[in-house]
Structures are given as C-alpha cells and as structure tokens.
Amino acid sequence: MVPVAFEYHRAGSVAEALSLMAQHGEDAKILAGGHSMVPAMKLRLSTPTTVIDLGGVSDLKHITDKGDHIAIGAMATHWMVESSDVISAKAPALRDAAASIGDVQVRNRGTIGGAMAHSDPAADYPGPILALDASMVIQGPSGQRVVSATDYFVALWETAVQPDELLVEIRVPTTPMNANSCYEKFAQPASRYPYVGCAVAVDKSGGTCSDVRVGFSGVGHVGFRDSNVEGALKGQALSAASIKAAADTATNGVDVLSDWSVSEDYRRAMSRVYARRALTKVGL
C-alpha cells in the first residue's frame, strides 16, 4: 500500500510547474488532488520517478463569473464546483456531476482539472463538459491554447493535453441553454462511478426544442455527444413522446463499454433511460 519511491517537487506557479516538467521529462507526473493518482501509486499501477505537486499553485483554484462564461481553475475541487452558486445557477449539469462524485472526502480533495486530465472512461465530468459546450485552456512551453469539448476527449485515458502541457482552466459559456441543463446518473452502488451518466442542455423557447446537446459519461471509451438524440429532438415540439422517441436512439452506432458488472446491452438500455430522464427534467 506504499508507492514506489519518487522525487517530490512542489510548484509555486504554473510557470514553475512547466519548467519542472521540461526538466524531468516523461517520467515526471503532475499531482493535483491526488485522488486518482495516489491510489494508483499505492497499488503500483503508476510508478512515476518524479512527482510535481500543483497543490501550492493558488491561482488555479478559482471559480469566477466572467459574464459570458464561468472560468473554473483546474485546481478547483469537486466540492467547490458542487457548492458554487454561479455554477448552480448557470451550469447546473456541472453542479449535479460534481455533487455525484465518489463521497464527501473525495470531493473535498479531487479537482476538476485532475479529473479532466485523467480522462478515466468512468469519470463523471465529460458528459456535462460536452453538453455545456465548455472549452479547456491548456498551457505549455509556447503559451496557452483553447480546445473545445468536442476536440478535447481523444481516446481512452487520452485528452488533448500533451505530456509537456497543463490543463489550467475550464470555461463554461453562460447561456440560457446552459442554465437549463442537468446530469442524471446511474451510479455503481459501491464506487459511485457512473455506469451511465447523461447530461443535457435544452433550449426550449416556446415549447419547441430549438437546440439541444446531449453528452454521455461512463458509456463509451471517452465521453461523447450523442448526435442521434440531438438530431431526433431538434426542431420538435417537446413532449413525453418526442423525448422518448429521441432518447431511444441514444448510443446508436456507438461502441458501448461492457465490464464485469454491466453488459453492453444493459448499459445501452440504461443510456436510453437516463437520456429520457434528463431530457424530461429540463425539457418539459
């Protein structure tokens, strides 16, 4: 239960972290909240030779209303996201997801940046990040770049963040559509990771679905937008029947995960149920 020995550095700023990363190369790992990494190091699934701790980088710990978007620092904890008034009011799907992660102790330490960089196929945030059309600010040796949610999730355990880069901020647009969003989750009863998590944001001015985004967590190798459901609902009058018809197309053509506890068919069926629940909650 003890990690393999490593060298430890505590960065005081993003610039210092980046230069430590450049200095120590591929064998160095960034430590954020440590709640994916330390458990993996204890089990020796992860054996970095150098650990660079972001815990002292206080300017990554903000949640700020910037008018047209909410800026969330990578080191904001799940609890900060869960308890933020501005996120509750303007991006409730993200609040719902943060509040559903693990347990109180995990939410007190784990960070949104760590979760987004880790890209665990079972993580909660990808669905809401996609449904809210958020963007990720990534900083590397040559400066910052902004990546959209749809370009961010690359593959299992892989995101747009390169080995010499840091995820520094998540930006969530503050649109009326994002204020009308939610995340519905079918949690594994012991770990509380999602079997299926579905986030939706719906623009329903005048009872018609003029726009909708649907993002899934825990269902595929990475989080994904479901164009079947979006296409089936966009432009339709919102009713229990139109929502069910659209939700029933969820995951068509998508590779769905299966594991020891949940088969592919069951997860696909539950994806449809949770899409229907989420759409019903904010669509009707």
Binding site: V51, W79, N108
Partner: peptide
Amino acid sequence: GEAVKSCSLLAAQCE
C-alpha cells in the same frame, strides 16, 4: 477544515 482520506494523500501535500 475539510474531511479527507489520509490514506490517499502524501504527507508532503500537507506541508
């Protein structure tokens, strides 16, 4: 001020 699992933190993180 926050409840945490002390088995999942390095002592160094608590400087």
